[in-house]
Simulated scan of single mutants.
Amino acid sequence: MAVTVVFLGPLRDMAGEDSREVAAPLDWEGLLAAVGDEIAGQLRNERVNVACAGKVLADKAALLAQDGDEVALLPPVSGG
């Protein structure tokens, strides 16, 4: 049983990989532990969003990913 965590944008560069399989079920604290300190620090920033099973979470701390779910880490979009 696994959840796929997908790193996007600069978070992919920090992680050094596109995605990572982690044990399911996965909650917010489990996600922070699974991604390491540097990325966990970024995730705590309100401008970084988390999507689970294709839906952006209004409250990241409410994350509860199940087996087969994809959790995408969405950094802020820059541009002008």
Rank of each mutant, 00 (worst) to 15 (best):
G80N: 12
A53Q: 11
N49Y: 14
D37A: 15
L63E: 04
P25E: 05
L63C: 11
L73V: 12
A24S: 14
W28F: 12
A72V: 05
A33G: 09
L74Q: 10
L31T: 13
V50N: 12
A2V: 09
R44F: 01
A24N: 09
K55L: 08
C52H: 08
V56T: 13
V35F: 10
A65G: 04
G80E: 10
V6S: 13
V6H: 11
V5I: 15
M1V: 08
A65Y: 01
L31E: 05
A53T: 02
R44Q: 12
V56K: 08
D59W: 00
R20M: 14
V22E: 10
E38H: 08
K55W: 01
E17I: 05
G36I: 01
S19Q: 13
A61C: 00
V56W: 06
Q42G: 00
P76T: 06
D37E: 15
D69E: 10
V71I: 14
S19H: 10
P25C: 06
F7E: 01
P10D: 06
A33H: 07
K60D: 04
R12M: 06
L73K: 09
W28V: 06
A24R: 11
D69Y: 09
P76V: 04
V71Y: 15
V48S: 11
A72Y: 04
A61K: 15
L26I: 03
S19I: 02
V3R: 09
A58Y: 00
E38K: 15
